Lab assay of single mutants.
Amino acid sequence: EQIEAIAKFDYMGRSPRELSFKKGASLLLYHRASEDWWEGRHNGVDGLIPHQYIVVQD
C-alpha cells in the first residue's frame, strides 16, 4: 500500500539512492526502510526519503 506524503523542507540527496525534492512536493512512500528513512518515489524516480523532511498524509 502506497502512502502519500508532502515535503516539509527542501532536501538535496547526499547519495545516488537519496531523492532530492522541494518543500511542498508530493511524495509516494512504499515502506519504512528504517527509523529515519522511507523507500519511496518522486517524479517517477525511486529512492530513499528522509522521515524528518516529510509529513505523512492520513
Rank of each mutant, 00 (worst) to 15 (best):
Y30H: 12
R41I: 13
A33C: 10
F9S: 15
L48N: 03
F21R: 01
G40W: 00
G47D: 00
E1C: 06
V56W: 05
V56I: 15
R32Q: 10
H51G: 11
G24L: 02
E39N: 11
E18D: 11
A25L: 02
P50D: 03
A25Q: 11
R17F: 15
Q52H: 13
N43Y: 11
R32D: 01
Y30L: 13
E39S: 09
W37L: 08
L29C: 04
M12T: 08
E39C: 06
S20P: 03
H42F: 08
S15V: 10
S15I: 03
D46V: 03
Q52I: 10
W37N: 06
G47P: 00
F21V: 03
E1D: 07
G13L: 03
L48T: 08
Q52V: 06
R17S: 14
I54W: 07
A33W: 08
E35H: 03
G40C: 01
M12L: 11
D10Q: 09
V56S: 13
K8Q: 10
R32N: 03
F21S: 01
Y30M: 08
G13S: 09
E1A: 12
Y53V: 13
D10E: 11
H51D: 10
V55P: 02
S26C: 13
G40A: 06
D10V: 02
P16H: 10
G24S: 08
G44S: 10
K22I: 14
Q57M: 13
D36Q: 13
R14L: 07
L19V: 12
S15C: 14
D46G: 05
Y11A: 02
Y11N: 05
E18I: 04
Y11S: 02
K22P: 13
D36H: 04
Y11L: 02
K22S: 09
L48P: 02
W38K: 01
G13Y: 04
G13K: 11
Y30I: 15
D10L: 02
E1G: 04
R14G: 14
I49Q: 01
D58T: 03
P16Y: 10
G47I: 00
G24H: 06
L29G: 00
K8H: 06
P50N: 04
I3V: 05
V55W: 12
R41M: 09
P16A: 14
L19N: 06
G40R: 00
K8A: 12
